[in-house]
């Protein structure tokens, strides 16, 4: 086991070195993802500043909770952009062109390589920007969180980042079985766009079922905020953990099934 970890670590180190070399070839686009996603979340902050200048609360959330929500979504997105977004995004193309062969024949997990081969250090400033938004949100909430709350919040952010990763992989694994996953990606974009603007507390009825259980983007930034604000009960925590566990298991199963189903260029 230790040997395997050591080998994986060496592979990751090498992938990062190659990636840095590649990025230096196109220096102009290095910070592109930071500026694009940064502007998106700045727009979000402005939108809710404007909304809160007209209303005091949205449901049970004041402006502080909403800023923390935006910062948390931005952080999950930023970690994804730095680590796995650009790698996993190319999975459908690799399957269609049969380029996954090159991954399957290497002595390292193909998913591990795909996940880390396109790390994007240009998005690291987005992580710092998100931390600033989070800090501002917490101060606006008027609370001084203890170590327990901070740890719980961090734990939820890690779990929700894993859920975000699961969703990305799952949606792209459709290509193992169908010619295209374009519609699924369209659905992903629409759901993400909606849920990064709208916290999970706004969903009810059928919409809650859809966006908290089937396309669980609705809980991704909401649960960490609820853990920080003290709104989270044991039931909510168990639901969140269960959704993450189910989607992680599903991702592993679908990935393994997909790889077995993969027929090189003809798939």
């Amino acid at each position: 086991m230790r040997k395997r970890w050591k080998k994986n670590f060496r592979v990751l180190r090498e992938l990062m070195r190659i990636r840095f070399q590649g990025l230096m070839m196109f220096q102009l686009g290095f910070f592109g993802p930071f500026f694009v996603d940064g502007s998106l979340f700045v727009v979000q902050l402005m939108v809710f500043r404007i909304v809160y200048s007209n209303v005091e609360r949205i449901g049970s959330w004041g402006e502080g909770e909403m800023i923390l929500f935006i910062g948390t979504f931005s952080l999950i997105n930023a970690v994804g952009m730095v680590v796995y977004f650009f790698g996993i995004r190319q999975l459908p193309e690799k399957i269609k062109k049969g380029e996954l062969d090159l991954y399957l024949t290497k002595p390292v997990s193909p998913l591990l390589r795909l996940t880390f081969e396109k790390i994007n250090p240009g998005s690291i400033p987005l992580v710092f920007m998100s931390l600033c938004i989070i800090g501002y949100g917490v101060s606006k909430m008027g609370i001084t969180p203890g170590a327990g709350k901070v740890l719980a919040y961090l734990g939820w952010v890690i779990m929700m980042t894993l859920l975000h990763y699961d969703m990305m992989v799952l949606i792209r694994c459709v290509c193992f079985y169908l010619v295209t996953n374009a519609r699924m990606e369209q659905l992903e974009d629409a759901a993400l766009e909606l849920c990064m603007k709208l916290p999970g507390i706004a969903f009810y009825g059928i919409w809650r079922v859809i966006f908290c259980f089937f396309l669980p983007y609705g809980i991704m930034a909401t649960l960490p905020v609820q853990s920080m604000s003290g709104e989270m009960g044991i039931r909510l925590a168990l639901q969140g953990a269960a959704v993450t566990a189910v989607f992680t298991i599903l991702t592993v199963l679908v990935w393994k099934g997909g790889v077995r189903h993969y027929n090189s260029a003809s798939s």
């Binding site: 909304v51 449901g59 909606l194 603007k197 706004a202 009810y204």
Partner: peptide, 9 residues
């Protein structure tokens, strides 16, 4: 988005 956000407001 509008229905849920403004519904709650």
């Amino acid at each position: 988005f509008a229905f849920l956000l403004w519904g709650i407001i």
